[in-house]
Amino acid sequence: MVLQRSDGRTDNLQLRPPTTTLSPLSRADGSARFAYGKSAVLAAVYGPKEVRLRDELLDSAKIEVLFRPLVGLSGTTERLYEKTIREILESVILKHLHPRTSVQTFEGADDDSSSLILSCAINATILALMDAGVGLKSMVASVTCIIDDSNQLVLDPSAEEIKGAKSVHVFTFDNVSKDVTSCVSTGVYTYEQYKSVFEVSQSACASVQAVYRQTMENKVGGVETVDEE
């Protein structure tokens, strides 16, 4: 049976090749646009820069995340996205290299297809941080998966596919350890479904990390790989 997904893809596990743009903004220290299909997020990074006295941390940079939808008003969901992104950045940015400074990231989302936007935002922020030259412990990538109403696992769903889904899962993995960097799942699902989503997401994130590498290589003009010990 050939599946027909709403955007023409035929494979439930097919990840749309993401489109990335580095440095679209001129004033920000670093910026990047990341898109899965039509869902795009623009992220900008200012930092390390001067920190407000009340936020100053003696041994690390203060990380602030601001997420605003570009259509409609901002609400509690955006605060949840900010919290998720900030927690990821707290564990990924080498913040102890920049004590008593602040690193601010701003994300603007082009459409409101909810959970897919979170994955795009995480990825755009990581790329923007790399563009700004802020040191990171690892490259972190995020994908979204759903279990649709016929209990099929669908990777990288379109906005229409998310609407009717039984459960939506946003997984984020780094490229160094086997740990989960972040997992946000909503809806109703079984533990077996959760495990299969986990595995599919993990390998999909690896391919997104390859896209990061390619994007950065395009910027700096190719990097010679060093043999790992």
């Binding site: 927690e87 990821i88 960097t181 972040s182 946000v184 799942s185 809806g187 699902y189 079984t190």
Partner: peptide
């Protein structure tokens, strides 16, 4: 059944 997972690292 599971109805939500919200986790960090």
């Amino acid at each position: 059944d599971l109805m939500g997972t919200f986790g960090g690292h």
